[in-house]
């Protein structure tokens, strides 16, 4: 655990030097990558560790974005608004989890998928609070320069990614993570062995929501303007899953690696095939699932220099 924490600390510290050398474009990309990392690591709690195919990331992201935006609308400072967003995602996921996590397999997957649509519909109709389909403008932070703003949001996302990673590490190396692995392998056997499966699954679901909620709120502050179809986009859910699959489900650094690789691919695709980028994204997903279902890290194990897995 100490070694992994050390590796991660070095990694995050190096990433922290990014604004010193990067220009605006790279800084934007870096912020997005960290955000993707948060989404992927978060999904890993429920999808990777507990093995529940959740498609609820988009719902938590949108909920966080709107909670933060509405809080800021009522005068909360950015930092407080982000915390409010995280808390609301946490509470929402806990309640939702108590209902949804009784379902398994496809039923759980689709039910979790629909949550984002439901929230979008509710946000759309709550015009007074959210601006409805018109979207919502957020205050621009009072900062000297555009560069300073960009750096501010970069560091905010970096801090969130660090916290998310720390939570992952703590969970993976504790009774919680162990219990989730048991559930992932055989839920009824885990139950028989004394694992309080409901509690553990709800914990995993809540963990998969809280940081995503904060990320949504930071994103909202960052882009100054949000609208329902943007932040409740089901692609957030799909991307989180794909990034984890890419990196290797259930592993510690897999989601981060997946986020980095995925963003690079996405950026290339965006630039070259602007009209058909979701189609190319689809193709990537198909290829990934068919040929690399265990992720990139599984490739390394086939190489001669790869060490034995612990």
């Amino acid at each position: 655990m100490r070694r992994e924490a050390l590796v991660a600390a070095t990694l995050f510290a190096l990433v922290g030097l990014f604004p010193l050398v990067g220009e605006a474009y790279w800084l934007r990309l870096g912020t997005t990558m960290l955000m993707y990392g948060v989404l992927a690591m978060s999904w890993n709690f429920i999808g990777g560790m507990a093995g529940y195919p959740s498609f609820a990331v988009a719902a938590f992201f949108g909920l966080g974005a709107y909670s933060g935006a509405v809080a800021q609308k009522f005068g909360a400072p950015a930092g407080l608004a982000w915390c409010i967003a995280a808390a609301s995602a946490l509470v929402f996921a806990t309640l939702l989890g108590l209902a949804l996590l009784r379902l398994r397999g496809h039923y759980f997957a689709i039910a979790s998928l629909v949550v984002a649509d439901v929230l979008r519909e509710l946000v759309n109709s709550a015009t007074d609070l959210t601006g409805g389909g018109m979207g919502l403008n957020l205050p621009v932070p009072a900062m000297s320069s555009i560069d300073a703003q960009a750096a501010f949001f970069f560091y905010a996302m970096l801090a969130l990614a660090t916290i998310t990673f720390a939570a992952t590490l703590l969970a993976a190396r504790s009774k919680l993570g162990f219990g989730l692995r048991c559930i992932q392998q055989n839920e009824s056997a885990a139950d028989m062995l004394g694992v309080d499966t409901t509690l553990y699954k709800v914990c995993a679901f809540a963990l998969s929501a809280v940081f995503v909620g904060a990320a949504g709120a930071i994103y909202a502050s960052w882009v100054h303007y949000i609208e329902p179809p943007d932040v409740f986009d089901v692609l957030y859910s799909v991307k989180a899953i794909v990034m984890v699959l890419l990196g290797g489900a259930g592993s510690l650094f897999g989601p981060l690696l997946g986020a980095a690789v995925f963003l690079s691919l996405e950026e290339l695709v965006w630039r070259k095939f602007i009209d058909v980028h979701t189609g190319v994204l689809g193709l990537l997903i198909v290829l990934l699932v068919m040929f690399l279902p265990k992720g990139l890290l599984s490739l390394s194990q086939r190489l001669p220099w790869a060490g034995k897995r612990p």
Partner: peptide
Amino acid sequence: VQPFPEMTVAENVAAAAMFAGAAAY
């Protein structure tokens, strides 16, 4: 029989010790 297939034999037993037997992680 229902082991956790992807865990080691020891981990299987440790899970039982931890969750029902109250052994520390």
